[in-house]
Design a protein around this nucleic acid. Structure first.
Lengths: 363, 363
DNA sequence: ATGAAAGCGCTAACAT
DNA sequence: ATGTTAGCGCTTTCAT
């Protein structure tokens, strides 16, 4: 009855050749290889403190040697449903989504969470229904990417049900939910500075959808930097709603003004692409005659020509962060429930590509 | 503590208030509610034949009443890895992907499969590595959306490992793997007919990436229909690679020819968007001066202006179908292994929007 | 610091 | 046609 007896016991002698090869190595194998108990391996895999360094090492070596990778399903089961995380989305068109899903899926795989992805359309009823399904499905937490992150009713419903909510991509921290986001204000300011440094002194701005707080922050960041420009700068602001078409139309208005801007900063890439089209239509060269900047760095940014100067929003990493956060919070929730929401800020990046350049000499 | 007696037994009295609320109802609850054994519930949930209709009914009623929904993790575990399905993707930019993921995820949820999503980049080594991970991870089957569906090496590796492979979106059936796809030839022909019916007699075509068989089928469908036109029609074919930029450039070439076409049919929406930009740049009105048609009906199709006439490829449903197929096949595989691959064809749809119109009178 | 035992929700094989 | 038993791979609680 030494180490091997256990093995014999496990599947019993019953099913003779039931080697269904589920993927092979389990913790058991690793444990035997490392000469420790299964529990120790579990502790190592979960970074639980009380393990001697040497033991941890030999376990890690065994893991490597056997190519062990934990089984998410088993983990989720053993953890008794903790780690069942919902994700609500509505706009499959956003270049955003696939990146976000990928990030979340990735995080789910590493952390052993079980992601349940729920879809709804733009209407409030549909959103409420989806939230209902998520709650009924027993989620420990729910991730809300924009625009659902702005939905008071969704977050209220979740709170009421005792489900942790994470708002992703809002313009500022929410008082009623944890959040993962970027600094839209600073990013917009940075882009504006980039344009100003290129010599632009008359810059058009295309706003995003008004119901998203991030839109406001982007505008504020832009305006603030315009006011700060040393040889003073001037700006024209047009409404938009994050769609290509609204960007096209806004750019048309901008370019047909008496004194058109030499640069256009759109609040997202879709609208920037629209602005690009408007410029081309007028026979303007980008960036020779007009600079165009976007925001988000979605796939579209490099799918258009010239490729867009834009702000890289770390969407995938935000999704991962959201996943980790919701997991952690749903675990802790039982203890101290009523504390201030966490607000996690991720770094963005200015990506200079081909759509922005020096201001044209004299105009 | 009435019907809860068993409940007490379950977690033992040990963990006093361990009501971690995993989502609530389990098969056990349903079984008790319906007055049958747990196994019967399992059989009903899995549509196993040998259950009396009346029993099945009462179980279903209990399921409804309690709002029961099966736990995918537990299922996957119990099935010992069967139902562990891999999905390989590489191009997160494709408007394709998020729809595909959503479809697959959806199917996974209903069928209780456990989707493992693996990423790789375009290189062959990276693909091989990803396939290796998937195999090592013990997948019962792997879904390969385009362009991986064209990879002989990937499919060979999978076969060798005894893992079921499903190729999605290829131009024709593969001899070495099951497939789910649409009729690219017929769809392209249909679009061409649409253009011809609008009076166009000189039509430009922008080809897709040469390494995808679907590209070839689309071209063939186009050419066939051109030849069939009654007042005879003429065509110009330009290469492309499915990117916006290649579409833009191809359209430039097309439009700068001595006798330019009155309509351009691009092999996908990205390239059609590029063609749109090229037209705008020349001050051409779409569809007044030039009609433009795309293919796929990705989100981009409605994000550009004018919105694209295109072919709707049922991506999400293809993903679902692929999931169902891989599940079924991986289950049956043990029995009869060596039979002809299944080839599943899904219906497409011609979507007429604003980018195509009557041929301009005289030119 | 480590191990043993029990059980997460479900399905497979084996009774009945 | 339905019930019983064992166990999927892991984490939990309780020893040691």
């Amino acid at each position: 009855m030494v180490s091997l007896s256990k093995k014999t016991t496990r599947r019993g002698g019953r099913v003779s050749r039931s080697k269904k090869r589920t993927g092979g190595v389990t913790m058991d194998h690793v444990a035997r290889e490392a000469g420790v108990s299964l529990m120790t391996v579990s502790r190592v895999m979960n970074n639980v403190p009380g393990v001697k360094a040497s033991t941890r090492d030999s376990v890690m070596r065994a893991v490597k040697a056997l190519g062990y990778s934990p089984n998410a399903a088993a983990r989720s089961l053993a953890r008794n449903g903790a780690g069942r995380i919902g994700l609500l989305y509505s706009n499959p068109s956003a270049g955003y989504l696939s990146q976000f899903l990928v990030g979340a899926l990735d995080g789910a795989q590493t952390s052993g969470a079980l992601l349940v992805i729920e879809k709804c359309d733009a209407s409030l009823e549909s959103e409420a229904a989806a939230i209902g399904r998520l709650i009924a499905g027993g989620m420990a937490g729910v991730i809300l990417p924009a625009p659902h992150a702005e939905s008071d009713s969704a977050i209220a419903a979740l709170r009421e049900a005792g489900v942790v909510a994470i708002a992703v991509g809002t313009g500022h921290a929410r008082p009623d939910a944890h959040g993962v986001r970027m600094d839209d204000f600073a990013a917009a300011a940075e882009m504006t500075r980039h344009l100003i440094e290129l010599g632009h002194r008359r810059i058009g701005f295309i706003k995003g959808a008004v119901n998203q707080t991030a839109s406001v922050e982007r505008l504020l960041g832009f305006e603030t930097e315009i006011r700060r420009a040393d040889p003073p700068a001037d700006c024209l602001v047009e409404p938009g709603d994050f769609t290509y078409r609204s960007g096209f139309e806004a750019a048309e208005r901008l370019l047909s003004s008496d004194h058109p801007p030499t640069a256009i900063f759109a609040s997202n890439d879709d609208m920037a692409a629209g602005a690009l089209a408007a410029a081309h239509r007028r026979g303007l060269d980008v960036p020779g005659d007009l600079s165009v900047a976007g925001f988000d760095d979605t796939p579209l940014a490099t799918a258009v020509w010239p490729e867009l100067t834009t702000i890289r929003q770390p969407v995938a990493r935000m999704a991962e962060a959201a996943l980790r956060l919701v997991l952690q919070e749903s675990r802790d929730q039982s203890r101290r429930d009523s504390r201030a929401p966490i607000d996690q800020l991720l770094p963005h990046q200015l990506i200079v590509r081909a759509s922005t350049g020096q201001v044209p000499d004299k105009s």
